[in-house]
Amino acid sequence: MKKDNILEVNDLKVSFKTHSGEVQAVRGVSFDLKKGETLAIVGESGSGKSVTTKALMGLLPQPHGFVKEGSILFDDKDITKLKEKNMQAIRGKEMAMIFQDPMTSLNPTMKVGTQIMEGLLKHQNLGKEEAKIKAIELMNLVQIPNPESRMKQYPHQFSGGMRQRVVIAMALACNPRVLIADEPTTALDVTIQAQILELMKDIQKKVDTSIIFITHDLGVVANVADRVAVMYAGKIVEIGTVDEVFYNPKHPYTWGLLGSMPTLESDEEELFAIPGTPPDLIAPPKGDAFAARNKFALEIDFVEQPPMFKVSDTHYAATWLLHEDAPKVEPPESVKKRIESMDHSEEATR
């Protein structure tokens, strides 16, 4: 493991057994996570981003889901090989997770305080009273008003945003080194989304943890992330810093994502929609999985899977368009305009 890396994922493959066959949800994903950074993973639903994080936490649904190949290095240990018992010691303590839907991710019949204290009691060797004090601290940290009385309430007495704060407090309980947020704002109202994002940025400054942020919302990425990985059909198709991926995207799928993101200025220009649907992961296509939906596809895309081409030290993309023999292809005009306008709005906010 490299020195400033906290997590290294190498060629991870995750599959699910179903009646119709083996679904290859993640088909060889590699990335690393540096200390204190926020890595965003973006992609459509079904692209394998959630499954990747479930594999990191050892929370793949049993008995159907399993890690087929690859390794996940954490503290120089391959955690895919760990026994459930040892994994329990890591989960919630070293690595914690914030889930998508705060409406369903809290136990409806258990008091909120008890749910926050559970992790503390398990990992921190605290007494009941100490755990209570720590839980109140955590609720203060995530800005839940009146924590002492709120602790004794049940989840249904909290609004969606407040519940998500509870979920965040639970995740932060043991000062995890890696925090995985799986679309933590998707299920919330827009105004609440902004509050939760602010809270997470705020907390990251305070507690110094590395965050993997799963989302399909590029706006959120620009707001919180240092680096971005774009996933499609179980693979990372482009990875780089936010600036690189947003202002110099190389993969046609990334163009599509950026082009399909509406902005305030986009009054006359049309949205750049990606046609078709993602491929069936029971029998993934032979070549590039995106080829069938790709306007810029080359013949080779239907024959051979593209390797990761290096764009810069931090920026890689898996598209044959970067091959030396490939014709020079520019992003479509509408996408270019979109990028420019993002540039302006970014400057405007600064």
Partner: peptide
């Protein structure tokens, strides 16, 4: 491996239309 690849393969494919809407299963 890069060198083994046929250069002819690096021309734009002309089958996007028909392929994009094929339902896989």
């Amino acid at each position: 491996r890069k060198k083994e690849l046929d250069k002819n393969l690096f021309r734009p494919a002309d089958r996007t239309e028909e392929q994009s809407d094929v339902i896989a299963r």
